[in-house]
């Protein structure tokens, strides 16, 4: 189990990198703040994300599939407004990584 990187490098991805991924970035920032996790969240498009290093990648399932195994944590969301669901998904994934007790 590795120590959690601080700050955590997080990418929120979508097709263009300036609409949905930006909305998602705000949700991710709010949730990580509530979880007390220090993170730097960047919104980007899928093709740019392929060339970037990240600890966590968050996006819609149709986009995150391509990133399975490319980052320690890859989370697929369906509703960017559902902060509770995202918190649950991130908490479980972080525990799997040994990043949370």
């Amino acid at each position: 189990m590795a120590a959690r990187p601080e700050p955590l490098k997080v990418l929120s991805v979508c097709g263009v990198g300036m609409g949905s991924s930006l909305m998602l970035r705000m949700t991710v920032e709010d949730v990580l703040k509530k979880m007390g996790v220090e993170a730097k969240v960047e919104a980007t498009d899928v093709s740019s994300a392929r060339g970037m290093q990240a600890d966590v990648i968050v996006g819609q399932g149709m986009h995150t599939e391509a990133f399975e195994g490319k980052a320690p944590v890859v989370v697929a969301i369906t509703n960017f407004m559902d902060k509770d669901a995202l918190e649950t998904q991130l908490t479980e994934a972080f525990k799997d990584q040994g990043w949370l007790e």
Binding site: C14, G15, V16, M18, S20, G59, H63, N79, F80, M81
Partner: peptide, 22 residues
């Protein structure tokens, strides 16, 4: 075309879409 090329990711939540291009 963005949706045709990249999928319906602009549908951000149930019943809600945010269409845009560059």
């Amino acid at each position: 075309e963005m949706v045709e090329e990249h999928g319906p990711y602009v549908v951000l939540a149930p019943g809600l879409a945010l269409a845009h291009a560059r």
